[in-house]
Design a protein around this nucleic acid. Structure first.
Length: 446
RNA sequence: GGUCCCAUCGUCCAGAGGCCUAGGACACAGCCCUUUCAAGGCUGCGACGCGGGUUCGAAUCCCGCUGGGACCGCCA
């Protein structure tokens, strides 16, 4: 069931003080899902009021991270929109004006160069969260740490920049944001913001807080847990479709058993009311599985484009082959490998003989026993796996006590340098008679 | 210390009083297929944190406890 919402406008508002990390991507993703589900607008706003830590480079990195994940926005600093500017550092006059208004009305006061909002005791600043439900708070709860003194809220810093809690209110109001969707760590900021909305005489938007993402040790995800930036996952061989799928499943499910889905499918099914409240642990095993499933489902040429960079990274001469041959090689892999990187590693022998040589050794090989077998194989009128297997089977049955693996495994190892591969006769067919001959001769097996 | 939030298999999700001797997925274990498994098929292991209520009946509602977490910056 779809909640009745019209003209949904949501935003992702990162501060450009680092790359797009898992938590940020998760938040952006849920905002995107809600916007797309409702045919609403997804807005990107840059919160760059921290002069010392914000950089344009990070702003770029965050945007390209979102593009990589497949999260497109409808309004933002790069493409503009009717409610700009979309960079807080370009909206200083707006913050200043409203702050002056609050001062004039006696709701805020100056201290030093800063402007500070007065918090009056005894106010009910409860709110209803779409995900967490009713949250009851009194203004008396806003105390200073280890003190019973009520804490006023700084809205303009001494350097003239607005603070987060103030700017977010001014911007969300002036950008006509209907749903504020953000991490659960913002629940305790919400009452302060509500105080500001009231003082300014503005309507309060809907709030939907999202569960946190934890590391394996159940602590908030951080550098200690290894990869935290979205790009690190790309570099490890995870695909955007899978990251999207995996992240969407952290704190949400459609309620049925469907766990592998595309962006449009997720957007169709997504409901804020179905978001979970419990913090979720980032589970690599599940990510691997989801990535593998997407890797399987990919169009062969698209799959090739995901895997190719990792072959190149390993120094293999990819351009010696046609894309058709390479893509077919991956199709033959039939789902082996969980990441694009793993798939590239598991299939390197299709690209080049070099890695095979590096792995190969003749330990325990009875060359004299093998030679006649390989010779028979190469007498096959057709280099087709059915024919090759047929020859192999009759050869094995003609030898006393011989088993298929006695011949198939040495062949596999000579051709691939691996003890694991797709059916070796299929591999041989795909590699081609010439290449197989080259490899076997190199080892003196033919 | 204060305020707020959370609590179902190891992990991610189902479950919105009887459909639950709690379901699915990942992981793990075992079996099967077989020229190998990193592919495929099957089976198994495994949870409602504890204690009180409410009710004919509670994983689901209420209270307490315990255990986690977030926030309390002129960071966002």
């Amino acid at each position: 069931m779809t909640e009745k919402t019209d003209n949904v406008r949501v935003r992702f508002a990162p501060s450009p003080t680092g790359a797009l990390h898992i938590g940020g991507g998760h938040t952006a993703l849920f905002n995107w899902l809600w916007a797309r589900h409702n045919n609403g607008k997804f807005i990107l706003r840059i919160e760059d009021t921290d002069l010392v830590r914000s950089t344009k480079e990070y702003e770029q990195t965050i945007m390209s991270g979102m593009v990589w994940l497949g999260l497109d926005w409808d309004e933002g600093p790069d493409i503009g929109g009717n409610y700009g500017p979309y960079r807080q550092s370009e909206r200083l006059d707006i913050y200043r004006d409203y702050a002056e208004k609050l001062v004039a009305e006696g709701k805020a006061y100056r201290d030093g160069e800063a402007i500070i909002f007065k918090v009056e005791p005894g106010q009910d600043i409860s709110f209803k969260d779409i995900v967490y439900g009713q949250i009851d708070v009194m203004s008396d709860g806003l105390r200073e740490k280890d003190s019973d003194k009520l804490k006023d809220i700084v809205i303009i810093k001494s350097d003239g920049m607005p603070t987060y809690n103030y700017a977010v209110v001014v911007d969300d109001h002036s950008m006509k944001i209907t749903h504020v969707i953000r991490g659960e760590d913002h629940i305790s900021n919400t009452p302060k913001q509500i105080l500001l909305y009231r003082a300014l005489g503005w309507e309060v938007p809907e709030f939907a807080h999202l569960p946190m993402i934890l590391g394996r040790d159940k602590k908030k995800l951080s550098k200690r847990h290894g990869a935290t930036s979205i790009y690190e996952y790309r570099d490890m061989g995870y695909m955007p479709d899978s990251m999207f799928n995996f992240l969407a499943l952290l704190g949400w499910s459609a309620g049925d058993d469907k766990e592998i889905f595309t962006r449009p499918e997720a957007a169709e099914l997504f409901e804020l009311s179905r978001v979970t409240r419990k913090a979720a642990v980032f589970d690599f095993d599940k990510l691997n599985y989801i990535n593998q499933e997407h890797l399987k489902a990919l169009d062969p040429m698209v799959r090739l484009s995901m895997v190719k960079p990792f072959w190149i990274e390993a120094g293999l001469q990819v351009d010696k082959h046609s894309d058709k041959y390479l893509a077919d090689s991956l199709t033959l892999m039939a789902g082996r490998g969980r990441t694009a990187k793993e798939m590239a590693e598991f299939s390197d022998y299709f690209v080049s003989f070099e890695p095979v040589k590096a792995r190969w050794n003749a330990e325990g090989l009875d060359k004299e026993k093998l030679k006649p077998f390989f010779k028979a194989l190469f007498e096959s009128p057709e280099w087709k796996h059915e024919k090759l297997e047929e020859i192999a089977r009759s050869w094995v049955s003609s030898q006393e006590g011989a088993k298929m693996k006695d011949y198939a495994m040495p062949l596999r190892f000579a051709l691939t340098g691996m003890k694991v591969s797709p059916g070796i006769f299929e591999v041989a067919e795909h590699m081609g008679r010439e290449e197989c001959e080259t490899r076997l001769k190199y080892y003196g097996l033919l």
